[in-house]
């Protein structure tokens, strides 16, 4: 059985997850660990995560970040995770190097927005949205290590369930984190 040393022996490690500019594919891959998720919920408590619907991150032992940084909300969430999580992990291609969303970096922001909201097919009320509730976009999508310090990296689009499981079990048991060849891929 897995165990992990934590400061408060009675408490289970707390884990938070978030998707920034990603597709939730990495979260889906986490669910792909199938029945092992029952083991996982025995071993950890989930804090903020789409899985719990908790909206703000509290102090955690582990933060898993999917997605790159594309707007002010991403920035805010990422920084909150960095403040609250002892260990922060970049999960998946978008968090690692910007991934597919960063392909918009080939264009200036104006071109992107005009293509979507002004010239695009099926646009009825052309105009770049300016509602203050919409998070403002960065001129480029960035990987998360360009904003905060990242402790571990799990590449893949998404990383496979086995990759995530290898990581989680090693981390929980305090073992060195190492992967078999087939568990590391960038696609």
């Amino acid at each position: 059985m897995l165990s992990r040393e934590v400061s408060d022996v009675s408490a289970k490690p707390r884990v938070a997850t978030a998707s920034l500019c990603g597709c939730f594919g990495c979260h889906t891959s986490l669910l792909d660990i199938d029945e092992r998720i029952l083991q996982l919920v025995d071993l950890v408590d989930f804090d903020r995560s789409p899985l719990t619907d908790i909206k703000t991150v509290g102090d955690c032992d582990l933060g898993l970040i999917e997605g790159g940084v594309a707007n002010t909300e991403n920035l805010e969430v990422l920084r909150a995770f960095r403040r609250h999580c002892r260990t922060l992990v970049a999960v998946g291609a978008c968090a690692v190097n910007g991934g597919v969303p960063a392909m918009r970096n080939a264009l200036a922001l104006r071109e992107c927005l005009e293509e979507s909201y002004v010239r695009g097919v099926g646009v009825y009320h052309p105009g770049i949205p300016r509602d203050p509730e919409i998070p403002l976009l960065l001129d480029r999508v960035h990987p998360i290590h360009e904003v905060v310090k990242v402790d571990y990296v799990l590449p893949g689009c998404p990383p496979s369930a086995d990759t995530l499981w290898t990581f989680l079990t090693a981390w929980l048991s305090g073992q060195p984190i190492a992967f078999p060849y087939t568990q590391i891929h960038y696609d």
Partner: peptide
Amino acid sequence: SPSFDLDAALASARALTGR
């Protein structure tokens, strides 16, 4: 610290939206 100027990275969006 970040590898780029976060606030400056919002300048074009501010200009495009007038916010």
